[in-house]
Amino acid sequence: MINNLSIMLIDDNVIDLFLNKKFIEAHKLANKTTKFEDSHEAFQYLHSASAADWPNLILLDIHMPIMDGFEFLELYNTLPIENREKTNIIMLSSSILMSDNEKVLKYPSVIAFLTKPLNITELVQLLKDKGIIKP
């Protein structure tokens, strides 16, 4: 099964970026995967991209230098609503603190909080449950 997803990965940890891209490729989950080490650059990209170039899914890390995941979400909320509507965000962090989990789920764009390492089967199931990919 090939899904027509375009996925954006935002994580300051290059190893995790590499791994997550590999997992996604191995499961043929997306036909396009873009990686961003710097959340600010990711924001700049979204800011200037046309609606067609927006990803369907963003996997967002929380703890990042310069701009962390929470700050990214705040900025993200200022982007045009019609672009944001088609995009879902999943938090992917090594934090297992309840407080972090509760904090991000308050953002309407965030559909889930996953802990690292990325469990690709869990991600696929989640996307199916949310109707983002075909069951």
Partner: peptide, 14 residues
């Protein structure tokens, strides 16, 4: 929760 787990989870991913 973060600094210790983060590299550990990278190893697990690899």
């Amino acid at each position: 929760s973060h600094d210790l787990r983060s590299p550990l989870m990278s190893i697990l991913g690899v």
